[in-house]
């Protein structure tokens, strides 16, 4: 079992910081939804390094990212299945 990052859309949506998208070592893993104004994670790409957690807690001080075991992720976004999306709202 491994853990992936999960971003609280409510806390993240209240800010416009986008710092986690800049510090993630993986390409297109922490994505940014322009419509909802929040970052979200492609769970199939996340390697669980927790760098984003440190960035959100210590640098941005928003505490919006938590590590969640992969089997407890609800409706995780998988970029390998649906491809890149500018916003998750449009696709629904």
């Amino acid at each position: 079992m491994y853990a992936v990052a999960e971003i609280d859309a409510e806390i993240c949506g209240a800010t416009k910081c986008r710092l986690c998208t800049q510090f993630c070592p993986e390409g297109n893993t922490i994505l940014y939804d322009e419509t909802r104004g929040t970052a979200y994670v492609a769970v199939d790409r996340c390697k669980g390094c927790e760098i984003c957690v440190g960035i959100c807690d210590d640098l941005a001080k928003h505490h919006a990212i938590k590590m969640v075991p992969i089997d407890q992720v609800k409706e995780g976004f998988e970029i390998s299945k649906v491809g890149f999306k500018r916003s998750l709202v449009e696709s629904e």
Binding site: T21, Q22, F23, P25, E26, L31, Y32, I51
Partner: peptide, 27 residues
Amino acid sequence: VSELGSFKEALEEHPMCSGCAMTLFIR
């Protein structure tokens, strides 16, 4: 850099270790 996450990046999925700073730099 501030647009990261809003466009499809040139760097695809890769086999570098989790949390590698080198990957971040390359990205």
